[in-house]
Design a protein around this nucleic acid. Structure first.
Lengths: 136, 136
DNA sequence: TTGGTATTGATAATCATTGTCAATAAGCAA
DNA sequence: TTGCTTATTGACAATGATTATCAATACCAA
């Protein structure tokens, strides 16, 4: 197993974390990079990619992959349970939803099939009211 | 709405369909292209991409996006209900699973939030028994 | 403070996927 | 069947997100 090597606390990492904390929605690495640049930060794009990636692995941020293959990141409130989203595939708006009993159910099912180290993705997408109206 | 323009029945499209029918697992466009080439087909890679894409849109094949952003395609048995999978993230093995009441539940929830044109992804991943054993 | 080393950032490289466009071949009408 | 219109094809260039490279820099433990 990979014993978590504990990342150093750098200026860049701090800035990225506060950007994440300030805006609560899903954005791509490039978008977060833009945000930081507009706040006169000098973080490099590669650094943003690396930070978001490691934060996602350690569970400190949520990550979803869009249909086009882009990865979006969002802050994950501390102490919050693992959760799921209802997302607009047009504008990206996301609402947190609660999937009753899903966790338990998934664990049980996987065990039955002999699977371990579980993970899962539940993504419900659609068109939000605004986007649905403008798509006729 | 986009009125389905009905695709022509070409040699390439037929070959792709039979490859899909012959092997029932999830593979990327490039992998399907390899399969076809090994069967002495001359289909171009771009054509495979285009065919799989249109087949996925019309619901004739299942498509899933992996964590790395790759899109995998698999035949979708005619007459079969929309379904979900338990997939090994190491070797790619997939088993069809039944998610009780999920469809209904998702539709109801989305309606409550005003979302339309629903779609959803439920992917449960883990390590199958074989891969779990070899990963210590 | 200092040394060892993780991190950074500019940029090149990768890799899946899409666009381009002339050549080809469905499918329809006569 | 023949000819014609137009979707489809395929080789290859282009895109776009992400990753690798590597010298310079900055944590942080001693």
């Amino acid at each position: 197993m990979t014993a978590a090597p504990k990342p150093r606390q750098t200026r860049q990492r701090t800035e990225i974390l506060s950007a994440l904390a300030a805006a609560g929605d899903f954005r791509s690495a490039q978008q977060w990079h833009d945000v930081l640049r507009h706040e006169s930060s000098t973080v490099g794009l590669a650094t943003v990619y690396r930070a978001l990636q490691s934060l996602a692995e350690s569970g400190e941020v949520d990550a979803v992959v869009t249909d086009s293959g882009e990865t979006l990141y969002r802050r994950c409130e501390a102490g919050e349970e693992h959760h799921h989203h209802l997302r607009c595939r047009r504008c990206g708006a996301a609402e947190e939803i609660d999937v009753p009993d899903f966790e338990d159910w998934a664990a049980k099912l996987a065990r039955k099939h002999g699977y371990s180290s579980l993970d899962h993705t539940v993504e419900i997408t659609g068109l939000c009211t605004v986007c649905a109206r403008s798509s006729d």
